[in-house]
Write a protein that binds this DNA or RNA. Structure first.
Length: 152
DNA sequence: GCCAACGTTGGC
DNA sequence: GCCAACGTTGGC
């Protein structure tokens, strides 16, 4: 089983929103970055565990856990002209983007903030804190995962 | 809201 | 295939 960190803007979709979804599960779509897409398509597996990260907000950081609850599938929002995720270059014949389902697992008692993660020498090599890491889907190592869980 | 850092596009 | 211009992300 692999570990991931996925970013979401809480104004758009927060961990509380995920918890309140039907079956606590929602489509994780709208990824429009090739590197992130490649992870989703090629590496993310059903049953993987995900750090749910809040970005572009007052206190950015990891707020809880989710589980990948589907295999990757074609991101239909790319075909929807009314969607903000519409992409004219993705076609049904040649789909460009993928999505997975995420299921709520737990919410941390506190936010493990980006500032805290950045300041921690044990996490100096983590992708999230490395320069210009804008990836919205990124791998987390077993060591990083266990260590961050222990911070809660 | 600013802007640094990155990604993407498109002319050549 | 290079690279300048533009767009986006996301912390601050």
């Amino acid at each position: 089983m692999a570990y991931w960190l996925m970013k979401s803007e809480p104004d758009e979709f927060s961990i509380d929103d995920l918890q309140q979804c039907k079956n606590k599960t929602e489509t994780w779509d709208g990824i429009r970055n090739y590197q992130a897409r490649n992870f989703l398509r090629d590496k993310v597996k059903l049953g993987d565990t995900v750090f749910f990260y809040h970005s572009s907000c007052k206190v950015p950081g990891i707020v809880g856990l989710a589980t990948v609850s589907s295999e990757p599938y074609i991101d239909q929002s790319a075909f929807d002209q009314t969607s903000t995720y519409f992409d004219a270059k993705s076609s049904i014949d040649n789909p460009r983007w993928v999505a997975v389902d995420l299921t709520y697992k737990s919410k941390f008692k506190r936010i493990i903030t980006l500032a805290e993660l950045k300041a921690d020498p044990n996490l100096a090599k983590m992708l999230l804190v490395s320069k210009g890491a804008r990836l919205s889907v990124q791998p987390v190592t077993q060591q990083e995962f266990d260590y961050i869980l222990s911070l809660e």
